[in-house]
Design a protein around this nucleic acid. Structure first.
Lengths: 230, 230
DNA sequence: ATTTCGTGTGTTATTTTTACGCACAAATAT
DNA sequence: ATATTTGTGCGTAAAAATAACACACGAAAT
């Protein structure tokens, strides 16, 4: 009796928040997964996430669980869909508010809390716990849509990056190939990149220019109502 | 005791599903609202919606509540965001999975269940119950995004419509003005409109051509991976 | 009777997108 | 050592899409 203390006139579902965390290593898209230590789906991989508390929003819950389980702080998570299939959790009725976030690989420290957190290449993601396979598919499709109109790709890259790295990122997410020179011209014309350094003295002809994302310029352009379009 | 029969170890929020129903009368965008008969916010207007049952998904719940409260059947509702602010309902912790749907005005029968359901012009929507003002703003912004890439506008128009009506719809949603002739050319070139009838015999020069949405052609084009773009 | 207006059908100029050409020198292969 | 391949930077020309606008016709309004 003492452990069943929250009672309601009608049945209530449990509510969780989950986080699909995307990364990029210069070649392929990565996803951060947690290995489950308890039943159900013990041993299977799943997204970081957990039960929502009564004094936090779904987004706050997502951020808290993310930090607790992976050590990742202050990630900018974005809610994308709520999954409410009746039997998605074998224990009880659980609906989950799914989020995604884009992080730089360097932000995830190894060790500490995140003993069981691991980056997977998108191609080698195993079969996941619960309905997380479906959640991943939808997260990916939202990521594809969003990157066409907002420069979220920069959240995945290091502070400084080359044009080729940026193109690889877009190609990996959208699963297309761009002409290198057209991509170059288009990106520069947008005006949201700044050359990081005037190039080192020991400049090899094949050492590419490093760029940095110009967030101020983007904010300014966005206010004027321009769209990226890819 | 007998009326507090569902007990849990941890507190659970209530979960509801709400529906923002958009319509179009040929000139302005409309929203379907319900006047609340009970506290809280008694007398205020709100979106149709209600508590989710344990054997239905959020989407099923949205459709069921929509039919119960407005008589609207089989609307194609689309989930767009889950609102989970801690104090959005003064009674208890309630999170709501918000949906929107586009319907033809003719689909909503007057009378029956929907005694208190009423269409409002978007400009004259009163201050709403709960956080429904915020829900409406987000629904509108999603509608704007979506109509740029999917021909959902046709769900708002009658079976047969004129090019001017279609243009008015796009202009009302996107809050822009198009050149009439460019809009005409672009729409026809897309190939998703078919002329309804070869024009009546008593054809007045100012009786406009009636079109019909070509759903089959659109499905075919979409499969080939084409985007609308407006 | 004259003017205004809504519709259908264009054409032309401008902008954007796409498809490549080429030089340079470092890296690699022979 | 010499030749070939490769990654980078900077172009240009053709093609396609967009934007701007001209005009006729006749019903509706004045």
């Amino acid at each position: 009796m003492s452990e069943q203390q929250f009672c309601y006139k009608y049945p209530h579902p449990s509510v969780t928040a989950d986080c699909v965390i995307f990364g990029f290593d210069g070649v392929a898209i990565k996803v951060l997964l947690i290995q489950r230590g308890i039943e159900p789906f013990k041993g299977k991989w799943a997204f970081p996430g957990g039960f929502m508390k009564m004094n936090e929003t779904a987004e706050e819950c997502a951020k808290r669980e993310l930090e607790e389980e992976t050590g990742l702080k202050n990630a900018s998570v974005e809610q994308f869909y709520t999954f409410s299939d009746v039997n998605r959790d074998p224990r009880e009725r659980v609906i989950t508010v799914a989020h995604y976030a884009l992080v730089k690989l360097s932000e995830v420290k190894g060790g500490d809390d995140a003993a069981s957190a691991k980056w997977f290449d998108l191609e080698t993601v195993p079969s996941l716990a619960f309905d997380h396979d479906r959640i991943l598919r939808m997260a990916l499709s939202r990521l594809k849509e969003r990157i066409c109109f907002e420069p979220i790709g920069f959240e995945l890259l290091p502070e400084l990056f080359t044009m080729t790295e940026l193109q690889n990122l877009y190609e990996a997410i959208l699963e297309v190939k761009f002409d290198r020179r057209n991509f170059y011209n288009k990106m520069l014309k947008l005006g949201i990149l700044i050359e990081a350094e005037p190039r080192p003295a020991n400049a090899s002809r094949r050492t590419p220019t490093k760029y940095r994302f110009n967030a101020e310029k983007y904010a300014e352009l966005k206010q004027k109502g321009f769209r990226l379009e890819f």
